[in-house]
Design a protein around this nucleic acid. Structure first.
Length: 429
DNA sequence: TCTGGGGTCCTAGGACCC
DNA sequence: TCTGGGGTCCTAGGACCC
């Protein structure tokens, strides 16, 4: 039996999370900005209709937004991840086979369901009713075709958010009306190459006969996308939640940083962050990479971009060891007289903490050190982030912390930020 | 004078995604 | 003044082994 998959994709996810607590913004243009209120990362249909582009620098469009009644928000990830987990939980009651693809998307296996269209409508209604989030659903035989279906479900109002793409005729019609660059997995660079081969629409790509040439130009991935468009599964659902293979924490500074002392605070903070993440998936790492860079948009100031790494002999997930190592890396690449704008720490080469290979030449984390990390994680979970931290992270990092002037409250994850409702008392008679 | 071939593993960098 | 952050996969090519 041919598989039937459904892609459930939230509409303007971050914006609609904000709207859940601001019902007055329904039907109004809303945008959500990246960290530091840098550029747009989510836009409602109304904002798109005003011509606001994805990744538009906010300082360039701020005046336009104010004049046109666009509501702008700083990103509020604690809120978004909480709403996301509620949606995923609800979706898991609608199909036992589900892939949590991203914060706002999931693939469901609907194989064997008699009325896929009715079922897709039910999925949409359930999420609307239980969470209040508008979603689009695309149903097809492969993931790439689900993406195509979903694209049209969002684009064509007459489809009311649900699009079924199971028969050939409809596939021909949709693919003919879709530019090849809109396909999942075809970005700017690959689209340029395809255009040189005379391939403009998704249908041109599907029907292109020279498979060897596709493989040569777009590598294996290109051939797989083409195969999926033809209805053959190359990307099955991955049900298992896999551990991350690398973890990164990095941030653009709120304002430029000139001194090593402040850079050290930022690096130590990122190191703590990745170490905590690492422990939460019960892994240990073998490698730490540190990078710093100046502001690439500031053409008249001297540019500097360096990174360096350190390999441990014994893998670790100890915050203090990772901080120390990261700071030694910083020593090697720091250059005075530069206007720094961003720093970051990445860890990689993981092993399961229970099965880690130890070294004869470097001491492993002791039980005492591991216990200390356990306690630190527990305290921070209960008392709030950074209740316990290394002094190396600094005490009040005002200089480099983010600008987030437009941030909403963490309505669903902090008691003291709960929504307040006032209403008049009406006596019951 | 004549100096192989096949395989694996690792890494950097490109491209893409949300 | 002000331009995000975090991830994955793939490939070419180097290093190394027998």
């Amino acid at each position: 039996m041919k598989k039937i998959y459904a892609l459930v994709d939230c509409d303007a996810f971050f914006c609609n999370c904000e709207r859940l607590f601001r019902p007055d913004l329904r039907g109004k243009p809303v945008i959500v900005l990246s960290n530091n209120d840098g550029c747009t990362v989510s836009r409602t249909i109304e904002a798109k209709a005003l011509g606001i582009e994805m990744a538009a620098p906010y300082f360039k469009i701020q005046k336009f937004c104010e004049e046109n009644g666009v509501y702008a928000f700083s990103s509020n990830f604690s809120l978004y991840t909480n709403i996301s987990s509620r949606i995923m939980k609800t979706l898991s009651t609608l199909s036992p086979i589900i892939e949590y693809y991203s914060v706002d998307e999931a693939f469901l296996d609907l194989t064997g369901i008699a009325e896929p269209y009715e079922y897709a409508k039910r999925i949409r209604q359930t999420i609307a009713k239980k969470i209040g989030m508008p979603v689009s659903v695309g149903v097809a035989h492969t993931k790439v075709l689900c993406k195509v279906a979903c694209h049209f479900a969002k684009q064509r109002p007459e489809l009311a958010g649900v699009s079924i793409l199971l028969d050939q005729e409809k596939q021909d019609h949709y693919l003919k009306n879709m530019s090849v660059q809109k396909l999942w997995g075809i970005g700017k660079q690959r689209a340029i190459k395809l255009r040189l081969m005379g391939i403009k629409t998704a249908k041109d790509f599907r029907d292109y006969k020279d498979i060897v040439r596709i493989q040569q130009t777009l590598t294996k991935v290109g051939r797989q996308i083409q195969d999926e468009l033809r209805g053959h599964i190359c990307f099955p659902l991955s049900i298992e939640i896999e551990k991350k293979k690398e973890i990164m924490s990095s941030r653009t500074f709120g304002s430029s940083v000139f001194t090593k002392e402040i850079l050290k605070e930022s690096i130590a903070t990122h190191a703590s962050e990745v170490a905590k993440e690492l422990r939460s998936q019960r892994s240990v790492c073998m490698e730490v990479t540190v990078f710093i860079r100046s502001n690439p948009f500031k053409e008249n100031s001297s540019q500097y971009h360096r990174s360096t790494k350190h390999c441990f002999l014994s893998p670790t997930s100890n915050t203090f060891k990772i901080i120390n190592t990261a700071l030694q890396c910083l020593d090697r690449i720091f250059k005075p007289g530069i206007e720094y704008k961003k720093s970051g720490v990445r860890i990689s080469h993981f092993q399961d903490s229970a099965e880690a290979t130890l070294s004869l030449f470097e001491p492993a984390d002791t039980v005492k050190e591991e216990d200390l990390m356990l306690v630190m994680d527990k305290v921070n979970l209960r008392e709030g982030k950074e209740s316990l931290k290394s002094l190396a992270c600094g005490l009040n990092n005002i200089t480099w912390k983010m600008n987030q002037r437009l941030k909403s409250k963490r309505f669903t994850t902090r008691w003291h930020e709960l929504r307040e409702i006032s209403c008049d008392y009406v006596a019951l008679k």
